[in-house]
Amino acid sequence: MGGYLARRLLSGALAILGIVIVVFVLVRMLGDPAALMMPPEATKEEIEIFRHAYGFDRPIHVQLVDFMRDLARGDLGRSLRHDEPVMDMIMERLPATLKLSVTALVVSLILAVPLGVIAAIHRGTFWDRATMVMAMLGQSVPDFWLGLMLIYLAGVRLRLAPISGYGGFSHLILPALTLSAFPLARTTRIVRSAMLEVLGQDYIRTARSKGLSERMVTYKHALKNALIPVITVVGLDLGALLGGAVIVETIFAWPGMGRLVVQALDNRDFPLVQGGVLVMAISYVGVNILVDLLYSIVDPRIRCN
């Protein structure tokens, strides 16, 4: 177990290092921040002075070594556009991102598990078909479309919830619903097929033949096992959501990580892009390692592999 964890941590660290280097090089291929940071009437000399002041005129490997050295000291640098420490800016956005992604996942789970179970138990009935069609639709609708529709219907027409912004719990409703559509649809389908499979297993029939009540069988034995594959997928979703949901954040004016880094990318704010992507990558890798550990606790068979 300890060796496995060490291996996972090592490969995770390698992946993060790789991402840092890729981002560093990629943003520098996008062109020069100087052109965007200077007023339109700036002359070539003025732009050169700027480039020199920020060190963008040095060879890229020298810049990379410098960046790595600062990184090792925990220093992500300062945003070019906002002249603020990148770390502070990220820490301001992270809570909003966490709030939105966790809520969206919780909503999707609260709805998906019962729906999937119903569909599985009543396989082939109207309930099953209806649930599956809904799930299919949920996977077929682009999120920006769903978001815009929710704004007009729930926000403007029915006035059920605030349309945009970051405030109390009510501000979470529309963005969280939009963001939960895809995981909801997918998790419903996974729960259904996992339940179907588990219900056909020998031990369930053993449980039944022991005279346990059907509810007991379903919830205590079947559901518990059927949820194992759900953990992986939810983990992947959470990892991805922590990277910020750019489109949903933009539509609902949610002050999260995705918007921060996309704006930084638009502004060629190199340090901010680097720092943002680094934090997203760490969240993703971290969540995945956690999921694997959880997995091996829930399902002891994994550990042997």
Binding site: S11, G12, L14, A15, I16, G18, I19, V22, V23, G239, A240, G243, G244, V246, I247, G258, V261, V262, L265, V273, V277, M280, A281, Y284, V285, N288
Partner: peptide, 13 residues
């Protein structure tokens, strides 16, 4: 490992 990097990179960005 390249695959790991790929997966952990936020796709939209």
């Amino acid at each position: 490992r390249i695959g790991d990097v790929q997966l952990a990179f936020p796709f939209i960005l």
